[in-house]
Amino acid sequence: MSQQPYEPYESYDPYQQQPQQQYEEVRGHTQTFQGQTWDTGTAHQHPQYEQYEHPPYAQYEQYQHQPQQAPEYQQQPQAPATDTHTAYLPPQGQQGQPAPTGAAPVAPATAPAAPAADADEPRLTYAQRARLEGRSPIIEPGLKPAGLTALLALLLAGGAALGSYGLLVPLLLLQALTAAGWFRLNGMWPARQGIALAFLGGVVADALVLIAGREYAPGAILGTCGVWVLLTLVLQLRSHAGADERMYGLMATVSSAALTILAGGTLAAAPEAVSAGAVAVAVAVVARALPLPGAASVVVAVLAAAGAGIAVGGMTDIGAAGALLGAGAGVCALVGLRVASYDYPSRFVHMTAGVALPLTAAVPALYLLGRVVA
């Protein structure tokens, strides 16, 4: 049976025929589609409903030239809807009737809240903010680590007065803080194997110095450093990490082991020099932590260290020459304190490297100047 064409547009009532019924079905499906599968992160509609973004009144004129059949709703691609939260509803008049052809879509009743302007903006770190303000981005350990350094220095001074074995306990604590702090200062964490290896090197150096005596202490310390460099090379060659990471780990482990072994030089220095130098370091780091201008703080710290050297040297055979020993130890302590400073707040770095490095850096001065003045 052949199909009959539609009547002319003038006598056609689109609201009572099949297109209107299908349009109502599409409206109902569109509203149901909103609550079930609408993706708020994109603005794409199902292709079956895309054609009804604008009412198809202008298409009724073509019905007089087409056979009677339902329009195909999946022919024309349509741009995605601008509202990403609700499916499109056809424009309505004030009495619920469809609006005239070409009317703009009705805006949704409630618009989505705009995100905060600074929601995606990265927060500046202390170092970045300091650079923008023209200040130094380096953060010094502060007064609390300085107090711990002073306490450890006093333990070393008291241990040196008791003898080599009395000095051994605070020395092991100094070496443990040095090994752990240097690894974290270089950005390597966790690095338990490297920290343990560096600390073991310090323990071996201490044992060799105690066995060989002060006369052969330099050879024992340098020999331990050489053996630990070779051991670190072997361990890094067995690593399955990338070449850059292995090289970085090698340098961090070697330097950490060298500093930890170097701290064992306190056993090789004269006991009077260790006592005077340790007290000088304690005074220097506390004075440096006081709220004074930069240059003035350095001068005050060095003068205070020299005064502490004189005071302790007067109690021993060093005498006034303790000023030289105290000043030298104070300068080395300030160098170690500067190395322990960090460009981002890190409590672990300040409480390990910030405590140990001032004392570790002062060990060469204690040994060399101690041989001169003691």
Rank of each mutant, 00 (worst) to 15 (best):
2 S>P: 15
4 Q>G: 01
9 Y>H: 07
9 Y>L: 13
18 Q>L: 15
19 P>G: 13
20 Q>E: 15
21 Q>E: 09
23 Y>I: 05
23 Y>Q: 07
26 V>E: 03
30 T>N: 08
34 Q>T: 15
34 Q>G: 15
35 G>N: 12
35 G>T: 13
39 D>W: 09
42 T>D: 10
50 E>K: 11
53 E>Y: 03
55 P>L: 10
58 A>T: 08
59 Q>W: 10
61 E>F: 14
77 P>T: 12
77 P>H: 08
78 Q>S: 13
80 P>V: 01
80 P>F: 00
81 A>D: 06
83 D>L: 04
83 D>E: 10
84 T>Y: 10
91 P>V: 08
94 Q>R: 12
94 Q>M: 08
104 A>K: 12
104 A>F: 00
121 E>G: 01
122 P>T: 03
123 R>Q: 15
125 T>N: 06
129 R>L: 14
131 R>A: 12
134 G>T: 03
135 R>I: 00
137 P>K: 03
144 K>F: 14
146 A>H: 07
151 L>Y: 04
154 L>N: 04
154 L>R: 01
156 L>H: 07
158 G>P: 06
159 G>T: 07
160 A>T: 02
162 L>T: 11
165 Y>I: 13
166 G>P: 06
169 V>I: 14
171 L>G: 08
174 L>K: 03
179 A>C: 05
187 G>C: 03
189 W>N: 09
190 P>I: 09
191 A>R: 01
202 G>N: 03
204 V>C: 08
205 A>T: 04
205 A>Q: 02
212 A>S: 14
223 G>M: 05
224 T>M: 13
227 V>N: 00
231 L>E: 02
233 L>S: 00
234 V>Q: 10
236 Q>D: 07
241 A>W: 00
241 A>S: 14
242 G>H: 06
242 G>P: 12
249 G>F: 01
260 T>G: 02
262 L>Q: 11
265 G>Y: 02
267 L>E: 05
267 L>C: 04
268 A>V: 04
282 A>F: 04
283 V>S: 10
288 R>M: 06
294 G>C: 01
296 A>V: 15
299 V>T: 13
306 A>H: 10
312 V>H: 01
313 G>I: 08
315 M>K: 09
319 G>Q: 13
320 A>W: 12
321 A>P: 00
322 G>H: 09
326 G>L: 05
328 G>H: 02
330 G>F: 03
332 C>I: 01
342 Y>F: 15
354 G>E: 02
363 V>Y: 05
365 A>M: 14
365 A>G: 08
366 L>Y: 04
372 V>G: 00
